Simulated assay, not measured.
Amino acid sequence: MQLSSKLNQHETLPPIRINALYPLSARFYAIHAVLLAVFGLLFLWLARDGSLDNALTGYWFDPLTQRFPWKDNRWLDLINHRLLKDMVIVTGVTLLIAGLLRRQPRWILVALLTGIGPLVVGVLKATSAHSCPWDLVMFGGKAVAWPLLGVAPPDSGPGRCFPGGHASSGFSLMALFFLYWPTRRRLAWLCWSGAVVLGLVMGYGQMMRGAHFLTHNLWAGWWVWLAQLLTYGCVTYLTNKMRKK
């Protein structure tokens, strides 16, 4: 009787919560598809004429010397550009090794998700014709700025600056969401929110150096989350499909 009543209690974990690689519902993906579309339109609007980007990054530009005084700042480079990025990498590698040793497929997948986002952003950045602020004419460079969805002018500069690669490292920890979602949803959202804050902080450090605009960093977070959702959805779908055979 005690066992039967205990099994019927509300706190009994549903099957989805004990699966090593649990699937997310279609409703979950539908909601996030709508949110990604809304935020994508918002980011396009923010980048429509570059005024917000120029104002925020331009705050750190010295018109007298025609340079960004914080560009080669030792501490900004050491703490924001190196130390924080190294900590993110160590987190992902540690989770991967622990997952392999303890045979935890969810840990392994989450560790791989921390790398998939920056990888996608890195590919997009490498093929982008948009140049960094410090390369633009308005900030002492020689390249010409142009709208995000416009046609690249001949003098667009070296490019390879969109989306923000460094910020994507911080955003990559949004993958921890999938680690805790089945049993500890508050912690899952806390990890997700913390990763967003970390990505924005790392991205702002690059804005101070003249390396990126705000929308570069916002789009980095957008692409990271999209890549993680798609990857997680595909892997869990294929895994559960194979189990049913």
Rank of each mutant, 00 (worst) to 15 (best):
L42C: 12
P105F: 14
H212T: 01
F171Y: 13
H32M: 14
R82P: 01
N240S: 00
P63T: 13
Y204Q: 04
D49R: 10
L101I: 13
L226G: 01
A167E: 06
P158N: 08
W181R: 06
P182G: 03
G194W: 08
G199Q: 05
L3W: 04
G165M: 07
R17A: 13
Y237G: 01
G159Q: 11
D72Y: 15
G99P: 02
T183C: 01
W107R: 08
M138N: 09
D86A: 15
L84Y: 15
G140F: 14
S156Y: 13
E11L: 12
W225M: 08
L42K: 08
S5A: 09
L83A: 10
Y59C: 05
L113H: 08
L176C: 02
P14M: 12
L113P: 03
Y180C: 02
L187K: 03
D72N: 15
F178W: 11
K142N: 01
A129H: 14
L95E: 05
R48Q: 14
V144L: 13
C132I: 04
Y59A: 13
P63E: 14
S131W: 07
Q9K: 09
F43L: 10
P147A: 09
D86R: 13
R209D: 01
G164E: 08
M174F: 07
N54W: 13
S193G: 12
K142V: 00
V110F: 11
P153Q: 12
C132L: 06
A30W: 15
I89F: 13
R103Y: 11
R185W: 07
D135Y: 14
L96H: 15
S193K: 05
G164F: 07
H81F: 12
L198Y: 10
